[in-house]
Design a protein around this nucleic acid. Structure first.
Length: 490
RNA sequence: GGUCUCGUGACCGAGUGGCUAGGUACCGGUCUGCAAAACCGUCGACAGCGGUUCGAAUCCGCUCGAGACCUCCA
């Protein structure tokens, strides 16, 4: 097994060699979506970033249990007691059962992730299905004396915690600063001892639909608790990797650490990994800013900022062209550049099957493969892998033009490299043909034979008419030196 | 206001001291009845100022600019 993988650990603010607690097993938890809205580009970035990690760990031979939750309860609208459960609020607006909304958007999320070729996690627990585990954890924290009850709600005592532990070790926050900079206009703070305290359990208001019984009140769990409870249940008191978007770093992940320290007497995980945001005109794309573009809008082109539709694979490749810890700026131009670049790689991969081998070569394909391995092992440097694949694409094309020699072994190596890195790890594959492709194939062959006939008779008026007509149907005819071919633009 | 991150050629985006990724666009070429596509090639940058160093996009300082978190957020 290759042990050279290093990852950037937010906790240490440095790259570290990855060493699992119980090799070859790896436990990995990633914060999943809140299912009260349609998935947008940001969801894709997080899911794809950790999909790459998942795939690479599998490639390295690890046995990975990948847990990604579905948040279907718990998030308060704000920290005030007026905070109505997000799902319930949405449900009221749409006159639907809360769980109906959750199911609908969970399915939507799955559909979009499938299109993006994101592997499904090993376990995908719902917060609503783990109320008992969450109550159990609250009891432990209460017993330890780090939480208190106030009017039926339970709060985590952050100030007390910070006297023995470090609330801020992950996010770099300093408690004094937090206490000094808390906003004054938030209401409902009177239940808390300190403004920084966060809810473990909230008593439900009468109009609150989603509610569960507990020793303290009929209510619902606080918003940091589900990940701690479900992570512990499925991965143990301490596991290897916890991931999520950078915007979850504080207070969500910081609070998870506090909860685990008290209930499990240790950090929940050893490596914290965070993907960066997607920006639009330099600003974070986010639901609250109202500037997010839904994934379906990309696939159909139905958004005013989109010049046209972009396929799921284009979106995936676009995301992988940037490192997961960098911000990535959206633009039509960048998307189209990604699309062309991706098609070029896929074309080269296809070309490998028809390449003629030569007796000797001065291309070192073993070294090229190692460079791809090294790039992935260096904190998942997917843009570097793509750069290497582009270099190989140039070589493949040159070999196809008889300007470069490749041996049988070279070609086999290249096939393996593309299959491993492009297909298996980056998860980039040719868009699936439509199911009528056989018919279309036959039709095209026939139409193009007519055109060929016209051309041979120098009847260019007819041949161009055929070509222009096909163009209008988004079929591009390509006259190459080895005959005619065509492609259906999407 | 506090904490932090970032500023790379027309655009996106790698690169933590010397060998100056990659993609797209542009331009040139190959191919072609023409065109498109495809392929090949070239050009092109490190926000500004100062410092450290034999040598800096890369380290340090300052200035300017952008952004993130501190409130639900991938």
């Amino acid at each position: 097994m290759n042990h050279k993988l290093s990852v950037y650990n937010t906790l240490k603010r440095n790259k570290e060699v990855f060493e699992p607690l119980n090799s070859p097993h790896v436990g990995m938890y990633v914060c999943g979506p809140t299912v009260y809205g349609d998935p947008h580009l940001g969801h894709a970035r997080s899911a794809i970033s950790f999909d790459i990690l998942f795939r690479h760990l599998l490639h390295l031979g690890y046995k990975v249990r990948y847990v990604r939750n579905i948040t279907d309860v718990g998030h308060l609208e704000n920290d005030a007691d007026a905070g109505e459960d997000k799902l319930a609020k949405k449900a009221r607006l749409e006159q639907l059962e809360p769980m109906e909304v959750a199911k609908y958007y969970t399915d939507r999320y799955h559909d979009m992730m499938d299109l993006l070729n994101v592997k499904r996690p090993s376990i995908e627990p719902n917060a609503s299905g783990h109320i008992i585990e969450q109550i159990e954890m609250i009891k432990q924290i209460l017993d330890a004396g780090f939480a208190y009850e106030s009017n039926g709600s339970i709060y985590f005592d952050v100030v007390k915690y910070n006297q023995e532990y470090d609330y801020g070790k992950l996010s770099g926050r300093i408690l004094e600063d937090l206490l000094a900079t808390t906003r004054e206009n938030l209401e409902g703070q009177e239940e808390k001892r300190n403004s920084v305290d966060f809810a473990l359990w909230k008593k439900a208001q009468p109009e609150h639909i989603m509610r569960w019984d507990s020793p303290w009140s009929v209510g619902f769990p606080g918003w940091h608790l589900e990940c701690s409870a479900m992570g512990r249940k499925y991965l143990g008191e301490q596991f290897d990797i916890h991931g999520g978007g950078m915007d979850l770093l504080f207070p969500h992940h910081e609070s998870e650490i506090a909860q685990s320290q008290i209930s499990n007497h240790q950090d929940p995980c050893r490596y914290w990994m965070h993907n960066n945001m997607i920006t639009i005109n330099g600003q974070k794309m986010g639901k609250s800013l109202g500037n997010s573009i839904m994934l379906e809008e990309f696939f159909t082109g139905s958004h005013k900022l989109l010049e046209r539709a972009y396929s799921p694979m284009t979106i995936r490749f676009f995301i992988l062209q940037a490192h997961y810890r960098s911000t990535l700026d959206f633009s039509n131009e960048a998307l189209q550049a990604a699309e062309k670049g991706m098609k070029r790689l896929l074309q080269a991969q296809k070309l490998l099957n028809s390449l003629q081998a030569q007796a000797s070569s001065n291309i070192d394909t073993k070294a090229l493969k190692q460079r791809c391995e090294d790039a992935m092992n260096d904190d998942l440097n997917t843009p570097m892998v793509i750069a290497h694949l582009s270099e190989m694409t140039r070589i493949i094309n040159a070999a196809n033009d008889k300007k470069e020699n490749l041996t049988t072994d070279n070609i086999a190596d290249l096939k393996e490299i593309f299959a491993t890195f492009l297909t298996k790890i980056l998860g980039i594959k040719a868009e699936t043909e439509n199911n009528q492709s056989q018919t279309v194939e036959g039709l095209m062959e026939m139409v193009l034979s007519f055109r060929q006939q016209a051309k041979e008779q120098k009847d260019y008026a007819t041949s161009d008419k055929i070509r222009d007509g096909l163009n209008k149907l988004n079929i591009v005819v390509k006259d190459g030196k080895d005959g005619v071919s065509w492609v259906l633009n999407d």
